[in-house]
Amino acid sequence: MGVILHKNLRLESPQLICSWPGIGNIGTLAVSTLRTQLDAQSFGEIEPWDFFEPRKVVVKDGLLEELVFPASTFYHRNLGGQDLIFFTGEEQPHGDGRLYASGEVALKMADMVLDTAEQHGCRRVYTSGACVSAVHHETKPRVVAVASSESMLAEMKRIPNLVLMSEIGEGAGDGVITGLNGLLLAAAKKRGIEAVCLMGEIPDWLSRTPFPYPRAARSVMEAFAVILGTEVSFDFLDRQTEEVDKIINGLYQQFPPDVKELYEQRRSLSQPGPISREEADWMKEHLDDFLKSLGDEQDGGGDDDDRPV
């Protein structure tokens, strides 16, 4: 089990920006788009076999050419004298069958990411994910921040369209960030490394669909652009938003009229918050069957010829 570094880089206090797949793939979309635009170059990877099962085998003319595992890759870019390390995981390690990483295997991966970052002198870590919220899908998602220290929170508050978790609901900033996007924060704080999670808001009902939510990824990417003091293009995410909006609006048109009426009230909320118990119950009562039927449609129709070789 280990990290393979393909290049020996000498970096100066790099910032680490990480993402793993999660709700709406918001963090992954934002970080991958940013990384691609900045043309960050791969310099290392985490050996996958202790964390993941192979996804695919390629056998050509009898020869086992390749076994494909989910990748966990480190990238580097120097941006105007500022060293950046990106880390993207294609999957969260989930030894016990859960979608999100947990337990020993998750801690091991978090430690390997942080060990590599610290080896290169990193003192600040960003992760990114989703904040399930009572927003309307046509409003601009805000970015919600949770950080390892008060000073980091103060710094984050200067970013436009960014709010602290305590500002958006009844929970006084309490909650849980599930999986590695959260766990890495805790592991970093334990090591004395500054850490922030930037979460794009996603409407509650969309958090239970399999679609990506690029609209929120755009908000997160805007925040990163401010943090890094760089200009980025949003064309890719805007095109994705247009495509996904077609699907979302198609679904929304099928909402029962009473649900639609209540949901539309969200447009006028100036400060929508995280989901209250009442809202969660209401959504569950009105939309769960509908969303489940969508899931069933997505799950069906598997390839008959998917026997493993």
Partner: peptide, 9 residues
Amino acid sequence: NMEWEGPPA
């Protein structure tokens, strides 16, 4: 010789 691209056994 086998030809295959998919889940591994």
